[in-house]
Design a protein around this nucleic acid. Structure first.
Length: 232
DNA sequence: CTATTAATAT
DNA sequence: TATATTAATA
C-alpha cells in the first residue's frame, strides 16, 4: 500500500495512463520521510508522532519492498532509487576538523543547503502565499516546514530571490531565461501550498546528526546539473 | 531580537 | 556559481 514510485522512470510499456489521470505529479507527493502532521500541531494536540524516518530509511524500505515484489512476480521495475537518483551526499572531505564541539548542537556546522527544485518550489509557494510584500525569513522558514532548514538559509535564498524578482520586472522579456531555479516552471501545476518536501545535504563539512527535533538527519538530493539544466 | 542589504568568504 | 557569513543599519 503506499508505494512511492517515480513515474518519470516509467515511460515504458506497462504504463496505464488511465490510471494516472487526476493523480498528483511525482514531485508534488509528500515524501514518506516527512511526518504528515507538523511537529507544532502534533505537540500542541499531544499527538504522539511516529519516530521520524530519514530519507535513506525510506529509500531502503522502498528498495526492499520493490525488490520483493519484482522477485515474486517478474515485474520490470527499472531503476528506482538507484544510483544517482537520490541518496545522501556527504562530501567527506575531512580536513582538520577537530575543532568541532561535539557538545553544542546549535553551533554545529551544517552542510551547505542545496536548493533543489522541489525545495525552491516550496519556497516560492510559501512566498506567494504570504505575498511578496510581507514574506520574511522566519515566517517562510516556519511555513516551509523543512527539517533542518534555518532562518539564515531562507534569508540567504530570499535575498537572491529578491534580486531575481527585481531584475525580472525591470526588463519585461528579452534574452534567455537566465536563472535555472527561478525561472517560471514549465509545468505551472497550480497547486496550493501543501505537503512537506525534504531535501538538502551536500556540503563541505560533515553530515552530523542533526536534530530537527529529536530524531534523524536530513538529506536526499537530486544531483542534477545545477549548471546547465532546467528541470521541472 | 529580526530584517534588510551589501560585501565578502567558502 | 551557489550558498554562507558578516557588518552595518533599520
Amino acid at each position: 500500500m503506499g508505494e512511492e514510485v517515480r513515474m518519470s522512470d516509467y515511460d515504458g510499456d506497462n504504463r496505464v495512463f488511465e490510471w494516472e489521470v487526476g493523480l498528483p505529479s511525482a514531485g508534488d507527493l509528500t515524501p514518506l520521510s516527512q511526518p504528515l502532521i507538523p511537529p507544532e500541531l502534533a505537540s500542541a494536540f499531544s499527538i504522539s508522532t511516529e519516530p521520524r524516518r530519514s530519507a535513506t530509511d525510506v529509500n531502503r524500505a522502498s528498495q526492499n519492498t520493490l525488490s520483493a515484489i519484482s522477485s515474486s512476480n517478474n515485474f520490470n521495475f527499472k531503476s528506482l532509487n538507484d544510483e544517482r537518483s537520490q541518496e545522501e551526499f556527504v562530501e567527506q572531505g575531512d580536513e582538520a576538523d577537530l575543532a568541532r564541539d561535539g557538545s553544542d548542537p546549535r553551533k554545529e556546522k551544517r552542510p551547505r543547503l542545496v536548493w533543489t527544485p522541489q525545495l525552491h518550489k516550496r519556497f516560492v509557494e510559501v512566498v506567494k502565499h504570504l505575498g511578496v510584500g510581507n514574506a520574511v525569513p522566519k515566517t517562510i522558514m516556519q511555513l516551509m516546514n523543512v527539517e533542518g532548514l534555518t532562518r539564515e538559509n531562507v534569508a540567504s535564498h530570499l535575498q537572491k530571490y529578491r534580486l531575481y524578482l527585481k531584475r525580472k520586472q525591470g526588463l519585461s522579456d528579452d534574452g534567455p531565461s537566465s536563472d535555472q531555479l527561478f525561472a517560471p516552471a514549465p509545468t505551472p501545476t497550480p497547486q496550493m501550498m501543501h505537503m512537506p518536501v525534504i531535501g538538502m545535504a551536500h556540503g563541505n563539512g560533515h553530515m552530523g546528526p542533526y536534530h530537527g527535533f529529536e530524531s534523524h538527519r536530513y538529506n536526499m538530493v537530486q544531483h542534477r546539473d545545477w549548471s546547465g539544466n532546467k528541470r521541472q
